[in-house]
Amino acid sequence: MRKLLGLPTAWVGLVLGLIAAPALVFVNTPGLRRALESGQIADLGYENLGIGLLGALILGVVTVSSEYTSTSDDAPDARQMTATLLAMPGRSRLLLAKGTALSLVVAVQGALTASATVLLTQAMLPKYAPPFEPARIAAAVLYWVLLGLLAYAITLIFRNGIITLTVFIVNSSVVSVSYLLTKLTPWAAYLPDIVGAHMFLRSNPGEVHIPPVTAGLVMTAWVAALLALAAKLFARRPA
């Protein structure tokens, strides 16, 4: 583990290259565009940041699912994961490298999108827009990163990106199941996707008020738990 962290940037670069090619194409178009578009029509820039997280989700999913798609019709069982594990047989190291790369890409993308959205909102609607607060932007970025990692962990558990994407996209854009659950029990506010929003939204999604720091900690705990489960499964399962 130490060794990996000590290794040159080649590591990060490698995994970046590994995911960036297919991922960035996906992400930058829908994620960025949607965030910007909605930034133009809505009155509170921060609220729209929730939509841009689709980008983070897709990145998190693609990081794993690209490994598990079949490489060709001639060999339906052949997957890139084989080549990846041949190059990097240390499985925990591999997961760490991928997680690091994912977090970096999402953080950069999130910072750019979030700042742009909020600034654009100010430009469009100077009267209503809240002030540009770096702390809230940072919280939003952190939310994205955690959500990306959440998608990463869940995809790793199911070894299939479609399940994760369906659940998250439906949940975040059509009907929020988590949000509906908050109507039944206040505890649902602590579900991973909804609790994180408390980090940067002040108008309390759901009825429960959770302080930003608590929200961040709760979401981090969720992500950590799921990552741990995913890592355990990944280490055990045949490739």
Partner: peptide, 19 residues
């Protein structure tokens, strides 16, 4: 092993580059 191990969307050179 079976197959090339390369992601469909990546070029041969890009695949070898990350490896």
């Amino acid at each position: 092993l079976d197959g090339s191990g390369a992601h469909r969307a990546r070029s041969a050179r890009a695949h070898l580059r990350w490896m």
